[in-house]
Structure formats: structure tokens, C-alpha cells
Design a protein around this nucleic acid. Structure first.
Lengths: 159, 159
DNA sequence: CATGAAACGAACACGGT
DNA sequence: ACCGTGTTCGTTTCATG
């Protein structure tokens, strides 16, 4: 089946007000609607309509709390580069589907270049990180090679 | 001065209810307090107290809208590995402080291993991505080498 | 398509258990 | 500490320009 991933209309008709709303909500996802309306310079009800439209268009994918990894007992983070044995579509898609469900996986990047995937993972300890790689990746016949880089520090940009 | 980065009390006294709240809010940051209370099995006022405490403890760092990069005109994403020329603390910290303020930077990871930093960046086009690397990284005397890997697809895990 | 007013529902502070 | 209640405030809908 053909994949219609090119939704051009997405950012074709994006107002200045829309961009302002996205920017404000990216910075503070719990900003009340009336406060948001005042910041972007429209009436609250108008702002609500805009925000709902952005949600339904897919411009806003969702709202999430940013949780301190250490608070949930996962103080360690790592980037794990993964090279697959085969590169057909089925094998690649299957690996992505599997990896996103693994415990501790924050994000999965399918990348171009020498490596196929980069996994952003959290772990409770160095042992747990090692176990994660060995038990879930190294044993996977689809995985040819992995390289784990511990994250010393992470900082968020502004997009 | 010594750096007190080991705040053990952070997850020393974390209730089962607290963990449930964090999990729910990570999945849906706009979940109303009374609905959240029902899901975790406490009274709304209790739930509000818990949530506020988690915020002030730093367990919840903030709330953010997840915005589709394509919607804001930045359809391309990449992971840029950066190796620095010097590895003294001052140089490393300075680079992090600079890189998080660069336009299009989503996240900055200071990693162990062959590379020093991995930058998660967004760009409007291949040209814009090239310009970003050349204008902001290649010209930086603190940067020895970079390697850019285009992101084909990104998926979020469940933590 | 944006606006204002009116009904609805949630957030917040208090006193009680 | 947790819970129920009342007040305050934000959200949502509808009618209108």
C-alpha cells in the first residue's frame, strides 16, 4: 500500500497566530487558554478554536509532563547505536516496532549513515543498562552490532 | 565549590501513588486533576497536593506540547555528533551553553565515548542543515570534527 | 472567522476527620 | 496526611456582527 506521508497542507496555511500558539504551548503546555489568548493577541474563544484545530491537524501531537529520570529511579541515560543485519523494509520496520516497546526506551531514531538506529534509553544502574543491551538487543538476530554511549548530561534547546 | 548533584532524597520517598501520577502525566500532561485522582485512586484534593509537591521537588520539570516539526516548517531532523578539540571542563561547559541556544537545536547530549556531544537538530531543508553545521559548528574553534546523521523517522517510547 | 456573554466544570483554600 | 465542601476562576458553547 502507498504511504501518504507528504501532507503538504500541514504548514501551507499556518498563521502567525498559529505559530505563536505552538511556541507558547511548547514552552508551557499547561498555559491556560485565556492567558494564551492574551499573549498571542486574540479572544479566548478564538484561541480555543485555533488550538483545537492545531491538535486535529496534527500540528500538536500531544501534551506531556517532563519527568526527572532520577525521580523514577532511572538516573542513567544512554544513546545506543544499533546496526541491523538486514536492511529490507520489513526487518527495519519490525525492529522499530519492537524497540519502542522495550522498557526504558525514551525515543527511537531511524538514521541514515553507518548505523541504522539510535536508541535513547534510561536505566537504573550500569548493570541494568548492560542487561538491557544484552537481553534485548544483543540476542536479537536482526541486530548485528551495538555501541553504547553513556549520557553525562542532557540539555533541552528551544527548537 | 563542590557540586551537590546527588540528591538522593529525590526518589527516596516516592510513593506508589506518586509514581502513578508521574506515569499518567507523562502520557497526558493535560489530564484534569479530578480525572487523574480517579485513575490513581485518591481524592482530587489529595491528588492536587501530591502533584504540586512533585512539581516543587523537581520530579516534574515542566509541561510541554509536542509539536510536529513539519508543521513549523522544519521537516528535517538530524543527529550531529561533535568531537571537541579540548576536553577541559571550561571548554566543554562553554560548548554546551552555546549549543543549546543555537536555532533548531532540540536537545544536547554530552556523552562518553569517541564523540563528546550529540546534537538533536531540526532544519527546514538539506541546505539549511548544511548551513547550520558549517556556520555554527565547523567554524567553532572548539569543534574538532562533526558527523551528521539524517533522521528518517522518530518514535517515542514509554520510558 | 472573530467576538462577547452565559452555563458548565475544574482548581484551589479551608476546616474537619 | 487524607478527605469533603464552598468559592473562585477558567473553559466551553452559542448567538451575533
Amino acid at each position: 500500500m502507498p504511504l501518504a506521508t507528504n501532507d503538504v497542507r500541514r504548514f501551507a496555511d499556518l498563521d502567525d497566530t498559529d505559530r505563536a500558539i505552538l511556541s507558547e504551548l511548547a514552552a508551557d503546555g499547561r498555559l491556560p487558554n485565556n492567558a494564551l489568548a492574551e499573549r498571542v493577541g486574540v479572544a479566548p474563544s478564538t484561541c480555543l478554536t485555533r488550538t483545537r484545530a492545531l491538535r486535529e491537524r496534527g500540528a500538536i501531537r500531544g501534551f506531556h509532563a517532563e519527568v526527572d529520570p532520577a525521580a523514577v529511579g532511572l538516573p542513567l541515560q544512554a544513546l545506543v547505536s544499533v546496526r541491523l543485519t538486514a536492511h529490507e523494509r520489513a526487518a527495519v520496520d519490525a525492529f522499530r516496532a519492537r524497540s519502542v516497546r522495550l522498557p526504558g526506551v525514551v525515543a527511537v531514531f531511524h538514521v541514515a549513515g553507518a548505523e541504522d538506529y539510535v536508541l535513547h534509553v534510561r536505566a537504573a544502574s550500569a548493570d541494568a543498562l548492560r542487561d538491557f543491551v544484552l537481553d534485548h538487543l544483543a540476542v536479537d538476530p536482526a541486530v548485528q552490532h551495538t555501541q553504547t554511549s553513556l549520557i553525562f548530561e542532557q540539555a533541552r534547546g528551544m527548537g
